[in-house]
Every structure is written in C-alpha cells, then in structure tokens.
C-alpha cells in the first residue's frame, strides 16, 4: 500500500474528458487505486466516483494504491494529474 500527495494541474479540473482519461488510465492497472480529496475518497476506476469529488485545478489530492503494480500506477496517475492529459 502506497500513497502520494499531488497538486492537480488541469485547467478544467478533473472532470469531463480529463476524468474519463484518468479513469481509463487507472483501469489499466491491477492494483486497487483510490483518490482522496479532504475527507472524501473515491475508487479511481469509477468515473462516477472520480467526478463526484469535483476536483478543481490547483487542489491537493491524495492517491493511494495497493497491489502488484502500485508503484507504477501511482507514478503514472500522479504525472497525469500534475501535467495534464496529453
């Protein structure tokens, strides 16, 4: 089980297209991955969960991962949140 704090740098925040891409990226890993904002957390593989956190640009979130590819998952998703989709 690992976790990582990330400051989100996505001009539109984490919804619409970025949220879809984020979930697709997360789904590619076998680890269980969570996204935590304040006292709310969501399954990072759930578009409903991710969108309901309504993460805005500039906010700090925590990524958690538990599984065989947890390290790679954290790196990739953190990079996505910090640098944007494409």
């Amino acid at each position: 089980m690992r976790e990582k704090q990330v400051v989100v740098h996505l001009p539109q925040g984490l919804h619409a297209r970025p949220a879809t891409l984020f979930v697709k990226t997360a789904t590619a890993f076998s680890s269980e991955i969570g996204l935590v904002k304040g006292d709310k957390s969501a399954n990072a593989k759930s578009i409903i969960g991710v969108m309901s956190l309504a993460v805005a640009n500039g906010e700090t979130v925590k990524l958690t991962a538990d599984g065989s590819d947890e390290e790679e998952a954290l790196d990739k998703l953190a990079a996505f949140l910090e640098q944007g989709a494409e």
Binding site: T20, V23, A42, N43, K45, S46, I47, I48, G49
Partner: peptide, 14 residues
C-alpha cells in the same frame, strides 16, 4: 460511449 462507461462503473455496480 459515455453511457457504456457508466454502465461498467465499479461504483455503480458495487
């Protein structure tokens, strides 16, 4: 396509 993604959403299915 968005609906397909919702339909497979782990949170909803869970």
């Amino acid at each position: 396509q968005a609906h397909m993604m919702l339909l497979q959403d782990p949170e909803l299915i869970g």
